[in-house]
Design a binder for these strands. Structure first.
Lengths: 215, 215
DNA sequence: GACTCCATACCAACTGGTTGGTATGTTTTG
DNA sequence: CAAAACATACCAACCAGTTGGTATGGAGTC
């Protein structure tokens, strides 16, 4: 999160700054001057690269999709051979990401869409693409896990994939309302338990995490 | 939501207006003039009743707690004798509330806390009290359901109560990102399925809703 | 029961600072 | 040198909050 991966041009410096500032203060409360100060550039540079503040919002959502896309694509949770193990490893990975301060692990697009869904359709759509796009990366594994276990569920792989994202987004809201990373981890534990129950991996009284030692 | 239950003084008119306007535009994007216009009062009246815009935010969160408190206290989901049935009836009730436009069924404090958790501690705390206070109304039923079935779960009643709220908050985010009420209902269905699985009420392939007829 | 006294509720106009955005340079790069 | 990248100076609109004032109603007093 701290290393701008591309060339440190004003555009990427502004986008990188946007990730932190917007997640801290929200989109509307973030001023163009805030972003320029955090990025160490001037207003002229800002409006050279972005037509408007809303345009930066769209670009930030797309930048967020790229960053998280490469993060998750390169993450080790894809290693297991069993698709259900991959799904569970993904959820464990999401738990591991709950470190540091809130603006470091919460979701930019989840924050932005709440403020803009009715007032800035372009930003809302960019956020929606980010969320559903990420959810879609889970669908294949869920589908394969269903087939591997010969289930005929009343729910769809897509629906479960979206549910995981809903739980994670909700976990962030609870974390922001004072619970911190711990309450978010607890909620993801419930999600892990749900997935295990769905696929018959554990009963209701089993612990949620398989690998992390004692309770 | 449409009937101001108390005397239509400027204060309650402003609070009632705040519920709709803030849920539509977000807290920071809502101006004091917006609220005055929606309430049909002037700015003088606003600052007579509220010291600042932030003070209105706190009052709005508390007003929201009162309104939802009486709504849920008077709801029919308390009727069943079995505590687990009451919990499931609560979740079914939450699904029924997903009607109308987004600003009508989404959560004021969930929206506000995202914008203010780092910048306005007083508002954040008021939102936190609202969420945890509502979650606590579920704990007794969950606890009773655990005892009634002789379970010894690794999760606590409090943790499950908070999880339900996380799922519902996350459902609102997905709804705002374009899925609408339908995607929120799907996610609550997953939550209902999880609760049933936790208490051994159904297997993974059973439909989520017991009472609403055909799929 | 008329009178003063005073607090509450509300209003219209104003202000000083802020905000998104622009106009016009200057520097860097290919 | 020409175009892109960035900086400086500036503006009109907006915004939270203030000021000074009016209307109303209830308490106390004689």
């Amino acid at each position: 999160m701290s290393k701008p991966p591309m060339k440190a041009t004003a555009r990427t410096k502004l986008l990188e700054a946007a990730l932190t500032v917007i997640r801290t203060k929200g989109f509307s409360a973030t001023t163009v001057d805030d972003l320029c100060a955090a990025a160490g550039v001037t207003k002229g540079a800002f409006f050279h690269h972005f037509q408007s503040k809303d345009a930066l919002g769209v670009a930030a959502a797309e930048y967020w999709s790229e960053m998280t896309g490469t993060l998750f694509a390169g993450a080790p949770y894809h290693a297991p051979e069993d698709p259900l193990d991959r799904l569970l490893a993904y959820l464990a990975f999401r738990k591991e990401l709950l470190a540091g301060d809130l603006p470091e692990f919460t979701c930019l697009v989840g924050t932005m869409v709440q403020e803009t869904y009715d007032t800035a359709p372009a930003i809302r759509d960019a956020c929606a693409r980010s969320i559903t796009g990420h959810a879609e990366t889970l669908e294949a594994d869920i589908e394969a896990a269903i087939r591997a276990r010969g289930l005929t569920p009343t729910w769809s792989a897509k629906s479960l994939a979206l549910h995981t994202q809903a739980v994670i987004q909700g976990a962030f809201i609870l974390a922001k309302s004072g619970g911190g990373a711990q309450i978010a981890a607890d909620t993801i534990d419930h999600l892990i338990r749900y997935v295990k129950l769905l696929f018959g991996l554990a009963d209701a009284s089993a612990p949620a995490t398989a690998r992390v030692g004692p309770a």
